Computed example of a mutant assay.
Amino acid sequence: MSAAPGRAPDRKPVLIVLHQELSTPGRVGRLLQERGHPLDVRRPRYGDPLPPTLAAHAGAVIFGGPMSANDPDAFLRREIDWIAVPLAERKPYLGLCLGARMLAKCCGASVQAHPEGRAEIGYYPLVPTEAGRGFAREIGQAWPSHVYHWHREGFTCPAGAEMLATGDDFPTQAIRVGPAAFGLQFHPEVTHAMLCRWTVRAAERLALPGAQDRVRQIEGRYMHDPQMVRWLDAFLDHWLALGDGASSA
């Protein structure tokens, strides 16, 4: 693919790990491409291998999916174990929803359902911690006040990691492990089309305790998504820059 105007044509690809046949990287994928990074899309669930090193990649993003990080499937175990590669090489890693819980599990934390069976599906408040406020200064952009969720499991903050943001029903919302690995419980990649598709194709989940109905979710998007766009734009610039000079050993 050709590079975006004004961008370097030889930027390394970003590894994109998806979990369903028709899943897309959404807005995250588009913004990475706009920055001149090709997308190396792989679906280990369907037999795609993961690279033994990220030396040829600018970073890696593992996206969400309907499965649990606790499921016994071999591909999930391989993905969780593989996260040790970007951690060891200090390369940019971003885990979104399931990908965040995989990062936590790789680092020895626990993943579990809400004790009362509650879900976060829709827009919910995000509260930065002291470390998170410092990170906002680091990237030059405040956290969004509300973020989009679609999950029924949470995770604990791994030992040695930084808790960057918290929430109500699921207290661990954003973590940083080492210099360049991040786990976000929420979905900054979701486009309007994705929200509409999810709320139609998985409409039965909107009846779960704590979930918001479709109308409230669409209203929430109009209210909160512009702030998310600004944050994600700043975050990705910072995240990609963390790979400069990272070890590929």
Rank of each mutant, 00 (worst) to 15 (best):
M1F: 10
A4Y: 12
A4G: 05
P5D: 00
P5W: 04
A8S: 13
P9V: 08
D10W: 13
R11D: 11
Q20H: 07
L22F: 15
S23D: 09
S23A: 08
P25S: 06
G26P: 01
E34H: 09
E34T: 03
P38N: 01
D40W: 13
R42I: 09
R43C: 00
R43W: 05
P44T: 13
Y46E: 15
L50D: 01
D71A: 14
R77C: 12
R77D: 12
R77F: 02
R78H: 09
A84T: 15
L87V: 05
E89A: 08
L94Y: 08
L96G: 00
L98C: 02
A100L: 07
R101I: 12
M102A: 09
L103E: 04
K105D: 05
K105E: 09
C106W: 02
I121D: 07
G122A: 11
Y123I: 01
Y123C: 00
Y124E: 04
R133M: 12
G134T: 14
F135Q: 10
R137N: 15
E138H: 11
I139M: 12
G140W: 15
G140Q: 10
A142E: 12
A142H: 10
W143L: 01
W150I: 12
F155I: 07
D168M: 10
P171M: 08
R176F: 04
V177A: 08
A180Y: 14
G183D: 10
G183L: 00
H187A: 04
E189Y: 00
V190Q: 01
R197L: 14
R201D: 13
L206T: 07
A207K: 00
Q212P: 05
V215F: 12
E219A: 08
P226G: 09
D233E: 05
F235L: 06
L242N: 05
D244W: 08
S247R: 09
S247H: 07
